[in-house]
Structure formats: structure tokens, C-alpha cells
């Protein structure tokens, strides 16, 4: 008996690959919306919007202090309960069974990412020197204009490496979606593996697929980072005096 049935593994690769689009879909949706919400939350935190500031501190602590799997389950089981209560109170007739599991995954992953992104964006925004905002104010811009034109673009440059890491982490995290019945890479690998006890083969296939995707993404992000850094290096060729633009108080 051969240790690993390579033939079988290779033969089943296409079947497992069918889950890749779903994996990517979850990651992309969560990344995009998580980034938007994360940015809004970060701004609320930085400008200490009353009530919302405290709320978001608790929100971020909760999301980061509980496992993603648990969050997935909370949504998966919580939404039908919520809908039932809504049906009772408002006489609506929403049926939780009609909701695709994918939607639960989208929501739960987005909420999860937004908490982490909020912290990343908060750090990036703080890293942009306060002098930039002051200069923008002093030429008469409103805070909104200053953020949009001067501060946010610089904050994104600072945040870029972290964004890459977050996305790669997301790809791996999508493997948990099978617990709420989403048919992505992990789910497919499991189904095929259980069918004939080909565990080693199928999970190796799954591992290789994830490894390949993450490797490609890392190459992509490093390439983008290098391009940005080269642009910066060219601009910094004649940099002389002080690099920190902190206003001194007298």
C-alpha cells in the first residue's frame, strides 16, 4: 500500500479548486468593506466622537478577544433568532432559511476585519504628523478637506504593508467558513477526503492550494511595496535637515 496516493490527489485537484472563487470572494468582500468600516471607526476613535468612541472601544475589544469561529456561529444562529423576533414584533415574514450561508460569512468576516483595520488605520493616521493637519487648517481647509486631500493619502502609504498581511490572513481565515456550510476549498477537501479515507492526500492538496495563493499574494504585495518605496527613494535623494515635523510649543 503506497503511503500517499499521489494519483488520487492530483486527480482531485480540480474539484478542490472549485472552491477558490468562493474563498477569494469572501476575502475580497471582507477586505473592502472591512477597510471602509475600519477607517470610519478609526476616525470616530481619533476624534473621540461621544458615545461612539466608547462603543467602538468595546466593539474592537470584543471582536479581537473572541475567536472568528465563534463569531461565525453567533451570526449563523443569531440572525434567524433576530428574524423570528422581528417577525413576531412587526408581522413580517422573513424566512432565515432563504439566506445563503455565504451572506453570513460575508457579514461575520467583514465585522471581524473592520475591528482589526480600525486599529491599523488609527495607528497609520497617528503616524502622519500633526503638522500636516495644522498646515492644512492654516491655509483654510476644513478638517474634512484636510483628511481627504492631505492626511488620508499619506496614512494609506503607511498602512500598505499591514493591509497586505491582513488580506493574506483573510485567505487563511476563510477556511473556517465551512463550519457555517459555505462550500469553499476546505469544505470540498473534507467532503472528498471523507468519501474514501483519503485524508492525507486531500488535506495536502488543500494546504498546497492555500500555500500557492498566499505565496502569489505575497509576491504581488512585495512588488507593489517595492514600487512605492522606489518612488519614495527617488524623492528623498536630496533630503537634508529635519525629518520630524512636530510643532514645538513655547
Amino acid at each position: 500500500m503506497p503511503i500517499i496516493n499521489f494519483e488520487f490527489a492530483i486527480q482531485e485537484i480540480p474539484a478542490v479548486l472549485k472552491g477558490v472563487p468562493i474563498t477569494l470572494a469572501i476575502a475580497v468582500v471582507a477586505m473592502v468593506f472591512g477597510l471602509i468600516f475600519g477607517l470610519l471607526i478609526a476616525l470616530c476613535r481619533i476624534y473621540r466622537v461621544p458615545i461612539l468612541n466608547r462603543l467602538f472601544i468595546i466593539y474592537i475589544s470584543f471582536i479581537r478577544g473572541t475567536p472568528l469561529l465563534v463569531q461565525l456561529y453567533v451570526f449563523f444562529y443569531g440572525v434567524p433568532v433576530l428574524l423570528d423576533k422581528m417577525n413576531q414584533s412587526f408581522g413580517t415574514a422573513y424566512n432565515a432559511d432563504h439566506i445563503s450561508p455565504l451572506l453570513y460569512a460575508f457579514i461575520a468576516f467583514t465585522i471581524n476585519v473592520s475591528a482589526y483595520q480600525a486599529e491599523i488605520m488609527r495607528a497609520s493616521l497617528n503616524a502622519v504628523q500633526i503638522g500636516q493637519m495644522e498646515a492644512a487648517h492654516s491655509v483654510g481647509m476644513t478638517t474634512f478637506q484636510a483628511l481627504k486631500r492631505i492626511v488620508l493619502p499619506q496614512a494609506f502609504l503607511v498602512a500598505l504593508p499591514n493591509l497586505g498581511n491582513t488580506f493574506i490572513g483573510l485567505i487563511k481565515a476563510t477556511s473556517l467558513a465551512f463550519a457555517v456550510k459555505v462550500v469553499e476549498v476546505m469544505a470540498l477537501a473534507k467532503i472528498i477526503a471523507n468519501d474514501g479515507y483519503h485524508f492525507l492526500e486531500m488535506y495536502l492538496v488543500a494546504a498546497l492550494i492555500y500555500w500557492l495563493i498566499c505565496w502569489l499574494l505575497e509576491v504581488l504585495f512585495t512588488f507593489v511595496e517595492e514600487k512605492m518605496r522606489n518612488k519614495e527613494i527617488k524623492q528623498k535623494k536630496m533630503n537634508t535637515t529635519i525629518s520630524k515635523d512636530l510643532p514645538l510649543r513655547v
Binding site: I3, S175, A189, Y203, A207
Partner: peptide, 20 residues
Amino acid sequence: CRSTPLLVQLFLVYFGLPQL
């Protein structure tokens, strides 16, 4: 370890290692 999900690693160890 850093490019594959923990779940995959867990299954590999639990299901795959005995087989190996």
C-alpha cells in the same frame, strides 16, 4: 505554517499523520 490555515494543519496532523 504561515501560508496555510491552522485548520488544514490540524487536519493534516490528526487525519494525515497516522496514515503517513
